[in-house]
Amino acid sequence: MAYAPWMGEPLDTWFTREVLTHERALMRFLHRNWRDHDEVEDLRQEIYVRVYEAASRRFPDSPKSFLFTTARNLLADRVRRQRIVSITAMGDVEQLHVLKDELEPERWCSDREALMHLAWALDRLPDRCREVFWLRRVEDLPHKEIARRLGISVKTVEKHIAKGLRLMTNDLHMDRKPKIAPAPATRARELAREPS
């Protein structure tokens, strides 16, 4: 049976097409506006849940701005919850700016660029994982054949694929040269942490 969840789930299709495609811009926004980069993936996950739940009641007219509004609200909530927020900090949060390029349509990414990015992400996988992923996704070999070639169990092949997929999913939505320095907007969070 060919599995296609979106056929019965217009919402899932919508989410994949209209929301997930902005992940790179979203990650950029979060990294810029949130100091603790370890928390960014959790924030992303929570934003997705909020957007998905809201869309299950009503599809937002403009998915991208809805996504970023949700992101901004979530960051603001988080800062509020610290309870020690000064007025200045709040002011900053309300103004967490979404850069113009984040609200513009995704820049058209050619097939060639997309493939380059994928190949880059593939090369970042650990050796064995990369080998398995190559044989599966590039050579299109069945799991059994991969297991035979590499002298490992079918279960191990599956584990490598799961791991490779997890790592690649995150890398796919990352800029190839990640920007490390957080922008001034991070101040909101820093201020929030200061005891009043």
């Binding site: 997930l20 992940e23 493939l115 994928l118 996704r137 590039v138 997929l165 690649m168 999913t169 796919l172």
Partner: peptide
């Protein structure tokens, strides 16, 4: 959904 989309995207690697 997020991983599934990425999985589909990796089909391009066949090139």
């Amino acid at each position: 959904l997020r991983m599934e989309a990425a999985w589909k995207e990796t089909a391009r690697l066949k090139t």
